[in-house]
Design a protein around this nucleic acid. Sequence first.
RNA 1: GGAGAGAUACCGAAGUGGCCAAACGGGGCAGACUGUAAAUCUGCUGGCUUAUGCCUUCGAUGGUUCGAAUCCAUCUCUCUCCA
Length: 387
Amino acid sequence: MKSADEQLQLLEQGVEKLYTRDELRQKLAAGRPLRVKLGCDPTAPDLHLGHSVVLRKMRQFQDLGHKAIFIIGDYTALIGDPTGQNKTRPMLGADQIKRNADTYFQQAGKILDMSPDKLEIHFNSEWLAQMNLADTIRLASQMTVARMLERDTFETRYKADVPIGIHEFLYPLMQGHDSVVIRSDVELGGTDQTFNNLVGRDLQKDAGQQPQVVLIMPILEGLDGVEKMSKSKGNYIGLTESPADMFGKTMSISDAMMPRWYTLLLARPIAHEHPMEAKKTLAHALVEQYHGRAAAAAARAEFEQKFSKKDYSETADTLVVSGDIGLLDLVEKTGRFKSRSDMRRLIEQGGVSLDGNKITDPKARVTVRPGQILKAGKLVVVKLVVS
RNA sequence: GGAGAGAUACCGAAGUGGCCAAACGGGGCAGACUGUAAAUCUGCUGGCUUAUGCCUUCGAUGGUUCGAAUCCAUCUCUCUCCA
């Protein structure tokens, strides 16, 4: 095992906030494997690069000999984390939660060390479901309303006239209670989890435990470079996405975002290259992480051919159509657009071409030859096959 | 429990009887320009077999009217002040 200071130096990289650094050093110096907690939401089985930031940090702990403790918040999900949300979430059935958890670890396994001695998984219903009202009130008495309202999301909602349910106050308490039960040494989270995780410290102190160290990772912005990466905003790159999509989407991020992606996703500084080269290097490295070396090289080659040289002849995606077809129907067959009105607009505005020739009449009929390339909008490029 | 304010499209926000599928801004999409970057300019932005056509949409349900996002009634939800 590496020395406490060596470990600390590694673990501090990319961290947004650490409560507290001294405590972490002390815990590391004790020389025993630490119990590192990470809570996960059983409602979001689609992991993306944003989640990977924290998961990669967890992996780092594992590699240093510590133990990952995952808490599936199945019971807390009944309430719904108020973070950034304002709607009560639908309840999930037990088997749905189980399935989500399986999917979660299947994806997280691309990053984590899944061996049993390095990973422990709990459902928080294991202990939370046992609590009666008296237990709950006792737990609630450990927190004040004023402190609760300090929390950013509550404060914002309160000021913005958005309702806050009293039950939502219980969420941080339940999550903090998890830390007490599993006796966590360190809890990981994104900045949005700061408050919740700090509550864990207080509850542990009250329970006579040494408080957990709270390690907060930054939230990764999404493809738009402004909002945090999230599925609902559609600005994400999923861990299971194809090499081509992963590469392409990475290329579309703004230059300004690159340094951040480099540090948070690759843990290395941006290379001093032409911005486009630096971005290709970034995209290449990311694809390699999730799909391997060969796939990364292929994705890069395909990207360069398609978009740099505008040579679509090697396009892999195909679409089977009959020879004579209305243009609108042809575009609809790609299945990538939400409505025919939408496609009609796309066509009228010159977004659709066949072998490079724009067609702007939505009513046009075309006779398709095998091997022709249909391009619709920026992202859809398919090779046509005649049935 | 009482008094008042409010709920409009993805978001913010106009609209107080017909000219409203609904101003404006943001976001999004597309085109030009590029490096599938940024910035800029332009267009579009409810749906439908494109139609000076029909359907759905201004919290919900009913009503008044030739005609309602707009008026009335009831309801639901939110906020503020008072008790």
